[in-house]
Write a protein that binds this DNA or RNA. Sequence first.
RNA 1: GGGGUCGUAGUUCAGCUGGUUAGAACGCCGGCCUGUCACGCCGGAGGUCGCGAGUUCGAGUCUCGUCGGCCCCGCCA
Length: 581
Amino acid sequence: MTQRAWDRPWCASFNVENLEQKVEVVGWIRRRRDLGGLVFVDLRDRTGIVQLVFETEMLSYGEKLSPEDVVRVEGTIRRRAEGQANPDLPTGEIEIRVSGCEVLTSAETPPFVVEDDTNASEELRLKHRALDLRRPKMVSNLILRHRVVAEARRFFDEMEFLEVETPILTRSTPEGARDFLVPSRVHKGEFYALPQSPQLFKQMLQVAGVGRYVQIARCFRDEDLRADRQPEFTQIDVEASFITEEDIFFLIERLFGCIFPMVGIDPPETFPRLSYAECMERFGSDRPDTRFGLELVELGPQCEGCGFRVLESAAEEGRVKGILLPGGADYSRKQLDGLAEFVKPYGAAGVLWFKLTADGVGSPAKKALGEDGCRRFLEAAGAGEGDLLLVVGAPERVVFAALGALRVHLAGERDLIPKDRHDFLWVTDFPLLEHSPDDDRYFAMHHPFTAPLPEDEALMESDPGVVRARAYDVVMDGVELGGGSIRIHSAQLQRQMFAALGIDAAEADERFGFLLEAFRYGVPPHGGIALGLDRMIMLMAGRDSIRDVIAFPKTTSASCLLTEAPSGVDEDQLKELGLKV
RNA sequence: GGGGUCGUAGUUCAGCUGGUUAGAACGCCGGCCUGUCACGCCGGAGGUCGCGAGUUCGAGUCUCGUCGGCCCCGCCA
């Protein structure tokens, strides 16, 4: 029998090549099928299941087993009876005739059935995560994640990157997401912050001459959650010296070429590149899903003097664009009202629609525009009979947000997204700065160390809003997988950047002084990228929630149902920290 | 911070315009069964309708509040 635990076979490791072997297996009872004089039991571990057979003198042992009991059994591998093989199971041709059985622990009835098609709510699954993680789908997500990380480490090692750990207890650097703060006991009234990303440290490492840095890094942001956003998440964090955008693109394209084939996705050797401006104009999004059409069409010129005041003023003061939905003329009034509602959270007043049918044009704007006026819009969009044109007129950022979201919504509703297609692309030439109307100042769109495009540098002072950045995102199927930039390494340029951001020398020194100081002693040109590991695994596993690929995720209210974190603490603990609540 | 939606046996749900004993399926318990793999058949137990107020003769159902899950907007350099 087995000598070492490490040599003991996994449940799903058996097949017809093991016939007649005496084996010992351990695992959890998945299901019992008691036929009276014969009991079948499925035994499960993380690799899968194997069927145990209890008969004759072992019958009484089998009868006592219930789901999730932990057992060790001995037995002999044998071929299943003629015609009794289960083709759905890797171990379906064999079974273990049990000759010895020890219940290591018996389990209470679980709150839900531990199987892939469990109908347990996510809330219940999170409360009983250990049970949930026994489900084959969840196990396979954990395994996939492990393999991706292992492959990424192998890849970066081969590319001569150095993995360096950066601090979890670090310094708050506002401008960005809200920080998680950790009170200091030694320095009462002062706080550490958990890193939103290892940004400053990885740049320090370039000054240090590491040259090529990588880290599978946990990051923390105290912002509201979403299906694809958790307060702590993992990045594949990359930074390198003496490189350009082209080197980063090459690196990541190579990396994806190693990773995505694990799930049967073959990325192209090089990814298409689209400028930020083009993305916004064509897709209304800086992370476009290019797997389907429905591109935005320009309708500004058609609005001019069209006679419909609403459109005229929208075109003058903002933008008017539309989406042509081929065959969409079958949308009912109710569905169209639904689309108008859909668009409202993005700031649009509604959606103006035009239908082209055999009977002519249908539109709420027909009265104002007339049949011919409506046709001008339909023609501009290239509409044919049976098509639907949806139009939004509003300030530019609203038009993009509303139509960008509507486009994805329509594609889902009409099932226009090819299942087996996956699109990768680079989005480039992001704006360097973003104007905030509320604060009437500029914020760094990426972060304050992002370099401007050389040809735009001259505009830093005169017209900072139009300066483009040496920043890039990698996008897959409409999901932002990561982003990065070439950094500023010139003190002069950095001063200009701070000036544009309204950060004076004293403030810059207080916030980032340690990095700026390091830069004075020989900073190499450098740049990098950070990839969202959780999202990447989510896409690879074909899930639509990041929680399914994180072992112990938090709920949308940022609590952990398993540990009930966050929780109150003792008065003593607070006192030691000099805190009052 | 805002909007939407859900909360009823262990679980997933049904429960109409407020009405008498709150149902189903799966699971669980007991019995029968030697080739099942969602085993089958027979029987049984199991409910503070999230919590708290209110309206009403009467509330799972209506109203308000509150807690929790999920989705979205804002936010996320």
